[in-house]
């Protein structure tokens, strides 16, 4: 395993911090003129996605973490695992636990490509594309002139996710959803 010294810290670096695989997001070099030098590092833990800050002394070093991101297509679930297939031509399949899939379960659709993060060859997180197209399976018929709710109503999508949609949307329609905000964008 490679080691990175504090002067090599940079955004995107994958490192082990307190036995947790993390990606560096931002680094600030801090040094009182006559005092100790530090690196204040903003990290994202790749298991939990938690963003946190930690300070290192200048000269401290961290072990690199074997973190890999792969584009993989979602295939199916057997309720215990969610299976993905590599799109690089290898057809390699990997199963992700519900913990690894996390919130992304709301946006999982067959044949859509996701960014799958592996740590030591095991799936630790699944990131959806910014936009997915999903079908409405349940929503009340929109009432004309009903603007009390800001002109929107809840709709349940094929994945089980519930999003707010305009009143004119009916069951069976396909919608484009922004997965970052969980908001309706347009009809697909």
């Amino acid at each position: 395993m490679a080691n990175y010294s504090s002067n090599e810290f940079k955004p995107g670096l994958r490192v082990m911090v307190d036995n947790e695989p993390c990606i560096m997001i931002d680094i600030e070099f801090v040094k009182p003129g006559k005092g100790q030098a530090f690196s204040r590092v903003k990290l994202r833990s790749i298991r939990t996605q938690r963003v946190w800050e930690r300070t290192f002394k200048s000269g401290e070093s961290l072990e690199s973490a074997d973190i890999v991101e792969r584009d993989m297509e979602y295939l199916y679930s057997d309720a215990e695992f969610w299976y993905f297939m590599a799109t690089d031509g290898s057809f390699e399949q990997l199963g992700a636990s519900s913990e690894a899939v996390g919130e992304t379960i709301k946006w999982l659709k067959e044949q859509v490509v996701y960014e799958v993060t592996l740590y030591n060859d095991a799936v630790v997180s699944v990131t959806p594309p910014n936009f997915v197209e999903l079908e409405v399976v349940e929503t009340d018929p929109g009432l004309k002139g009903d603007t009390a709710q800001g002109g929107s109503k809840p709709a349940t999508l094929s994945t089980g996710a519930v999003v707010r949609v305009p009143l004119f949307i009916v069951e069976g329609e396909k919608l484009k959803i922004d997965t970052r905000s969980g908001e309706y964008v347009s009809r697909a």
Binding site: G35, F38, E53, T55
Partner: peptide, 20 residues
Amino acid sequence: LANADLDLDRDGWLDVIMSH
């Protein structure tokens, strides 16, 4: 503040408090 035990002396920790 540092979210870590950095093995510093008193002045080192004061530097952390001043800068952070």
